[in-house]
Simulated scan of single mutants.
Amino acid sequence: MPTLEEAQKEIIAEFSEAADWEERYQMLIEIGDELPVLPPELKTEDRLVPGCQSRVWVVPEEKEGKLFIQADSDSAITKGMIALLLRVFSGRTREEIKLASLEFLKEIGLDKHLSMSRRNGLYSMVNKIRSF
């Protein structure tokens, strides 16, 4: 498993290969498509991320001091965004998650190219993960 920093660098490298934002949105959708579907019984109200326009469920499980996270969304782009966050955060300690820089989001341009509501949703997902 790559370190937290390596995971972020991998994402930056992948997105830097895209020619434009249309291609980056397509990448987000494809990344989201790779996320396993969350079983319906785990899609409960208490697992919903508040502040997201789309419905996003986040399910943490702690094993040997590390937080492993499953997630799903009813929106293709939002599912891609949570999939990116899981690549960075899942399998890390609570301390690593709490102290992690989110510079990769700026590096790939998500903070500039998302609508205000999607950007708010992205940071709501980060806050939900960090709240665990």
Rank of each mutant, 00 (worst) to 15 (best):
D74M: 01
D72F: 02
K79C: 00
E61T: 09
Q70K: 10
P50G: 13
E61Q: 14
E62W: 04
F68I: 15
T78G: 02
M81E: 08
S75G: 04
W57D: 06
G51W: 07
M81L: 15
Q70R: 10
E64K: 14
G51S: 08
I77K: 01
Q53G: 02
Q70L: 04
V59L: 11
K66D: 12
R55M: 01
Q70E: 11
E61P: 01
V58L: 11
M81N: 07
R55P: 02
W57A: 06
S75Q: 05
K66Q: 15
G51T: 08
G65Y: 12
G65H: 12
L67D: 10
M81V: 11
M81D: 02
G51K: 04
C52N: 01
S75I: 05
A71V: 05
V56I: 15
V58S: 07
E61N: 13
W57M: 10
E62K: 08
Q70M: 08
F68A: 13
F68H: 14
S75Y: 07
S75A: 14
V56C: 07
T78Q: 04
S75W: 06
I69N: 00
D72Y: 01
D74F: 01
A71M: 02
I69V: 15
R55Y: 08
S73E: 09
E61D: 14
D72N: 03
D74L: 00
K79I: 02
R55H: 09
D74Y: 04
V56G: 02
L67R: 05
C52V: 10
M81H: 10
K66H: 14
R55E: 06
E64C: 09
K66Y: 14
G51Y: 07
W57V: 10
E64P: 05
G51P: 06
S73F: 06
L67Y: 08
A71T: 08
I69H: 03
G80A: 09
I82E: 05
C52Q: 00
A76N: 04
R55Q: 13
Q53R: 09
A83C: 12
I77Q: 01
